[in-house]
């Protein structure tokens, strides 16, 4: 029988989640671009654009609750909606981290950089890659991809520790850079958190497919 319209609504909603995830990915990329170029205007667009992501989260949440109330889904359908309700929160937080990066750029202003940025952009690439893989795993219900993605988080954590140590040494050597180095630590910490939220995406995708909750953030 039927429930065709329900399945269609569910698919539409999954695409909305993808759409939101892509907006978050763009926000992180733009924030990093504003950091690289010290482009305050670009940073502002990230901060302003966060509202769009927040609105998407609310809209998806509302739609999920509506489907729960009206369709009383069971089994995989129930798990899919539960997963969407959880991961939109992670996506929204990732969006906030993009904003945090943009705010750090704003605070640093247009002072010349204390060092060429190498590892922080690498962290951003890794975080974005995890997010993209997470979204793809969610859309394709691909638990192998989800698990492979979650394993990347170790490298991201490792890189964060390295960046942190490096900036700490710079501050010890030259207290004049403390202010900017602190901002860069905040940026790196935000990117490290992006990886953690992406790992949650993987965990929820595995739950959606198998019904088992697994902690991948070890």
């Amino acid at each position: 029988m039927a429930r065709i319209s329900f399945q269609q609504e569910l698919e539409k909603l999954q695409k909305e989640v993808l759409h939101m995830g892509e907006a978050v990915d763009r926000a992180i990329a733009t924030a990093m671009e504003s950091l690289a170029q010290r482009d305050l205007q670009l940073a502002e667009t990230v901060i302003q654009g966060d509202q769009v992501i927040d609105d998407l989260e609310l809209a998806i949440e509302q739609e999920c609750l509506k489907l729960l109330a009206l369709q009383q889904p069971m089994a995989v359908d129930l798990r899919t909606i539960g997963t969407m309700l959880k991961i939109v929160t992670d996506l929204e937080r990732m969006g906030d981290h993009a904003t945090d990066i943009a705010r750090a750029v704003r605070r640093m202003g247009q002072t010349p950089p204390i060092k060429p940025l190498v590892d922080i952009p690498r962290m951003a690439e890794m975080g974005r890659h995890m997010l993209q893989q997470g979204l793809q795993a969610f859309m394709e219900r691909d638990i192998q991809r989800a698990m492979a993605m979650a394993r990347e988080d170790d490298q991201l954590d490792h890189l964060f520790k390295q960046v942190f140590r490096e900036l700490l040494l710079l501050m010890i050597a030259n207290p004049a850079v403390i202010e900017e180095a602190t901002q860069l630590i905040l940026v790196a910490a935000s990117l490290e958190r992006v990886g953690d939220h992406a790992t949650n995406l993987a965990e929820w995708t595995i739950y959606m497919v198998t019904g088992e909750r697994r902690d991948l953030n070890l």
Binding site: M1, R3, F6, M74, A75, V76, D77, G211
Partner: peptide, 19 residues
């Protein structure tokens, strides 16, 4: 049973895909 049925026929029935 209603969140993680183990048999695909149960899954299909409770999600309204047949029956």
């Amino acid at each position: 049973l209603f969140t993680q049925p183990s048999d695909p026929r149960t899954e299909a029935y409770i999600t309204g895909r047949f029956g």
